[in-house]
Structures are given as C-alpha cells and as structure tokens.
Design a protein around this nucleic acid. Structure first.
Lengths: 230, 230
DNA sequence: GTCTATAACTGGATAGAC
DNA sequence: GTCTATCCAGTTATAGAC
C-alpha cells in the first residue's frame, strides 16, 4: 500500500529526499558495475553481486527485476552524466571558438570527460569505462548499446570537425572517427597490455600522458583522411 | 592400447594422415569459434557448441578436456598461422626495402594478413577476428592472451617503424602502436556500429575501403607523435 | 571414437513471512 | 525493504557401455 512494486527506472527508489548514495540500490549498482566490467554480463552471477554488495540476493530482483535490468541500469546511470558533460564541453568549445575551431580542439572537448584524470582516480568511473570498452567490441551488443546512448555525442563531434575541415567528405569523417573510437575504447579497457608490451615504458592507465597524445595522433589521422589533395 | 587419452595440444588428433579438416574435432572448433566470438566465453554452453557441430556433448571433453581447453585450442589454431604470415610479410618488406622503408609500408605489411579481403569472405576467419577483438578489450583476459601470442609481431613492427623514423622515442612508438591496435580491434569486432552511425555511408565490414585508410590514418598518427620537433 | 546416463552443482527467479 | 526457503532448468564433467 505504501509503495508497491519496483519502478523500472534507474537507481531503484530513494524515499523522498535524494540521499540515495550508499544505500542498498546504489551499492548493488556499484558492485555490478565492477563485476560486469571485469567478466562481462555472462561471467557474473547475481549471487556474487549480492554478496559483494552485502545485500540479500532477492533484493536485486526487487530493484531491477532481472539480470538484464540490472545491467541496463548500470549502463544508463553514468551514460546520462557523460552525455550531458560531453555535449556541454563541445558546445562550450564551439561557442568560444566560433570561426576558429581546430580538429585538436574539437577532439579535446569530445574526449575531455572521458579522460579526466580526477575521474580516473575513482574506481566507479574506471569500472564503467572498462565496461564500455568491453561492450564496444562485443559483436552481440556493441552496435546497439553504444549507438543508443552515444551517437548524438559523436554526431556533434563530426559536425565540429567538419567545420574545422570544410573540404572533408562525410564518409572520410566517419572512417576517421572509427579509428579514434577504437583507440579510445582500447584505452578505457585497462587490460594492462601496453604496460607489459612496452616493458613498463608506457602504461595505458597513465591518461595524463595518453590524453594529449590521443588528441595529436587522431587529429593527424583526421587530416590525413579528410584533407587529401593538399 | 591403440591410443589412450586425448593429448593436450591443438586440434584433437588426426589418425596418422593429416586430413583432419571437416571431421568432428575441427567442426567442434569451428562452431566454438563462431559462438565464442558472438557471446564470449561465458555466454556459450558446451551443449550449444555440440549441437551446432552435430556431435555428442561428451566428445568435446574427449578432445579438449574442459571448456577452457576448447577455448584455448580455438585461440591457438589460427594464431599460429597469423603469426607466421605477419612475420613473413614484414620480413619480406624489410628485405626488399632495406634502406628505404616507410611507416606506411611497415604498417601495411603488419596489417596485410588481417585485412586480406579474401580471408574476410571466409566465415571461419571472420569469426576468429571477432573473437580476437572481444578478447582484446576484455579486462580479465586481454592483456595476457593478446600478449602471449601477438607480442613478437608487434615488436617487429615497432622495429621496422623505428627504422623509418630514426629519431622516434621508444615510448612514443608504443603509444602510437596502442592507437593503431585499438582501431584495428574495433574494426575486427564487426559490431555494425559504423554502419548505423554513418547512416550506411560506411561499413566496417568493407575492409577494401578501410584497409588503405587505416594505413594512412595510422601513419600520420605515428608521425605526429614520433617526429615531434619538425 | 561415439553415445548413454548420471553425478554434482550452480544459475536466475519467485512466493511469502517479517 | 529485507530475508528465508525453494523451484527447477540448465551447467560442466565423468564413468562406462558399445
């Protein structure tokens, strides 16, 4: 009678105030995020998540109905935050640099919220990024999930770069974005491969070093494809 | 008495001749490859694999002991072929172009066997590439599995590019390779994302278009990072 | 080599008490 | 909201007949 069935949206239900951080539902989301990121959807059991969140397993169903519902809630929670920030960053850049936008500037705004060193110090965000990277390269879900949430951000980036490179063909912009996206996702995946490959010379967790290089590398790539007859 | 237990290596056991293609063991490998690529290790059951390969489920254990053994066999079967071909291609390039190697040439040799259009028409190879892309971005296995089999090829690529860009710093070569690797893996993942994102303008399955662009994009990126004070 | 049978367990999900 | 109890379908893996 007081409040009956679980609602389908987001983060379970706070009572009326919104101090819902660190209560059961968001602890569940945090641990689900960490485990899904590490082992993928099928590599994790609801019991594991419940145990690590220190809640009863039945609670996961109470809040999120089924496993996929929990996964989606994890996915959406931070996607919305990121989308807002990235669109804002690009808008800010576009309006402060109208008429003199550069490829580098556009990419920097696009990447900013994903490469923020502060954010990479938070385990929650790092786990989320790792999850996104895994989903990105998964044949079954990659196209759908990445597209559903992140396409508007990408479209905006391409508009900005098209302004900076007015002679660029649309398809070359998309090909170029594809390369950037791959590099970004591998970076976020935190497999540690670069570390061992380079014998410790580089670490993919070292985003302070990586971010500016990703901008320069990608900008050069965009120019090579989109500014051909030069 | 004749032959007792399964051996631990590779592709089950051919009798004495080696016409083992299309018999049970390799059908199992083919179907496992397709399913692992689509859903990941945990997203697939041995029963499914057996059903699709039209063999009894117990046979999978006879040949490969356990699920992980089957997965490893799938992984190794084509890894060895690829490694040989890629090293050969780079060696051929290095010896025919001694003293006049280019970044483009080195990358082209490195990518060649992965981007061969003929090969991309075979479902088996396509599945394998998809699987590699998935593993590549998986936090749990990516570092270990990619490194164990593919590091020598990467090391050789970096040597060749270092010859073409003699002033390059080692770490910048590794950072650059990281970007190339990410783009390559996303390409191989075949999620269809680029297709819908671009509204059909581009398709990531269209490797005839993608391959030369990947070479140019990456070469420009390498130069941007490794040839700084120019 | 292939198949039957089954052991031994784990998975997601739900009903209902508190 | 949280927990107990439980259902039952599906999982890997093995023993042993043919």
């Amino acid at each position: 009678m007081r409040q009956q069935a679980p609602v389908r949206k987001g983060v379970g239900r706070p009572r009326k105030g919104d101090q819902d951080k660190s209560d059961s539902a968001s602890r569940i989301l945090d641990e689900a995020e960490a485990l899904f990121a590490a082992h993928g959807f099928h590599g994790v059991t609801l019991r594991e998540i419940a145990a690590r969140a220190k809640v009863d397993a039945a609670l996961l169903h109470y809040y999120f109905q089924h496993k996929k519902g929990l996964f989606d809630a994890v996915w959406e929670r931070r996607a919305e935050v990121l989308n807002r920030e990235r669109l804002d960053a690009m808008e800010r850049y576009a309006s402060t640099h109208a008429g003199r936008m550069t490829v580098e500037g556009a990419i920097e705004a696009f990447l900013g919220p994903l490469m923020d060193p502060q954010r990479h110090r938070e385990a929650g965000w790092r786990n989320y990024f790792t999850l996104a990277a895994l989903v990105s390269n998964s044949a079954a879900w990659g196209g759908e999930m990445m597209g559903r949430f992140f396409d508007p951000v990408v479209k905006r980036l391409i508009e900005l770069i098209a302004t900076a490179l007015p002679d660029a063909r649309q398809d070359e912009l998309y090909w170029s974005y594809h390369m950037l996206s791959g590099a970004l996702m591998l970076t976020l995946s935190e497999t540690g491969r670069l570390d061992t490959l380079s014998g410790g010379l580089c670490s993919s967790a070292d985003i302070e070093s990586l971010a500016p290089r990703m901008v320069r590398y990608a900008a050069a790539g965009f120019r090579a494809l989109c500014q051909p007859a030069r």
